[in-house]
Amino acid sequence: MPESSVDISVVIPLYNEDESLPELHDWIARVMDENKFTYEILFMNDGSTDRSWEVIKELAEKNPECVRAIRFRKNQGKSAALNVGFKRTKGRVVITMDADLQDSPDEIPDLYKLIAEDGWDLVSGWKKKRYDPISKTIPTKLFNWATRKMSKIKLHDFNCGLKAYRGEVCHNVEVTGEMHRYIPILAKNAGFPKITEKVVEHRARKYGVTKFGLDRFINGFLDLVTLYVVSRFGKRPMHFFGMIGTFMFVIGFLALFGLIIYKFKELWANNEPGLIADNPLFYIFLTTIILGMQLFTTGFLAELMSRNSAKKPNYTIDETIGE
């Protein structure tokens, strides 16, 4: 990776946040100027249907040296916005924050020091005091508890949008699907284990409404299971499917063989054993064998695909500001 040309890159994914953008930009610029940071602000417009892009253009005219932006042709999700934005950052430290003014830019200097001076790879914000309804806070606590247990990373708030990264981290992780919730796990798997957290201010939403519904918690759990399996077996799927398939095949085969022996003993003793197919256990054991063979075959095919696939997600970008 080439030497970074600026101190801080601020990546802001957004969808229909035209009201908050001018205030957010001015706040970030003030914090950067007060601390004498060189910086860039990268607005990732995720297919907004309001005036967000027009507002961003006005901000780019006002601050052309520091404002850059990308507009997707359609809404492709926060993970896509972060993934594309990460690859285009130039800062030694990358800060991500939401565009709704619930994250405070005043946190940036302390986050920067934790990366640049204290040597952490990733610092995740922890909104210890939240201004969210209980319908959101309770599922969030359960989600974070499950993620801590599965990932072994001791963070209280995995899904906090306010995070700081060493520049190399952003250039070496792929944030696909809905994996923006699990960037600390992706960073750890990519070889950046120095991860910590910092208590940050959570502000009440000033403009608009939240863009996320309760379905994100269900999707988050499914993504967590996916990430766990992929991180452990993504490059060796045969170890996962093949192990389960082999176990089921062997158990089913031995059980079926034992049933056949039992029937022969019954024949020897009574001369009237009846048909083996009359026993329901025959079908259970046979099904176990078939499923075991199918799982083994699935593992074999997945192994071939993982060794030959190099395709990366393709996001359709409509327009860019700055390079």
Rank of each mutant, 00 (worst) to 15 (best):
Y207F: 15
L101Q: 04
T320E: 15
G91D: 09
S151Y: 03
L224K: 00
Y112D: 09
S48T: 12
T89V: 11
K36L: 09
Y182H: 14
L24E: 08
M1I: 07
L275K: 11
P313V: 08
H156P: 00
F212R: 07
F43V: 09
F212V: 15
K129A: 08
K194P: 02
Q294N: 06
G77I: 10
L259P: 02
G213A: 11
R203I: 11
D46V: 14
I8D: 07
I185M: 15
K194G: 02
P105W: 04
I195S: 04
W145P: 01
K113T: 15
G274E: 03
F253D: 00
G245D: 01
V11L: 11
T38Q: 08
K78E: 08
K312Q: 07
L227V: 06
L59K: 14
I251S: 01
W145S: 09
I115Q: 06
L301C: 13
D110G: 08
G119N: 05
T96Q: 05
G85R: 04
K163L: 06
I185H: 02
E266Q: 14
K311S: 10
F300T: 03
A302R: 13
A277R: 07
P133A: 10
T140V: 09
K154G: 05
W126R: 08
K141G: 13
D103P: 03
V67L: 11
E197H: 07
K128M: 01
K136S: 14
M32A: 13
D33I: 14
F300Q: 00
T316W: 13
V225H: 01
I95W: 04
A99P: 04
S124K: 07
L24G: 05
I195F: 05
G252M: 01
M305G: 03
K206I: 11
K149D: 03
L14R: 03
G119D: 06
F296V: 01
L111P: 01
W120T: 01
I8H: 10
T137M: 05
G213E: 09
K57E: 15
D7M: 13
K211P: 00
E174K: 12
N16V: 10
G322N: 04
A164R: 06
S5W: 13
L14H: 04
L256M: 15
K36Y: 12
M243E: 13
K265T: 11
F282S: 01
D50G: 07
K113N: 12
I244Q: 03
L142N: 13
I195Y: 09
L101M: 15
R216T: 14
K128Y: 04
Y39L: 01
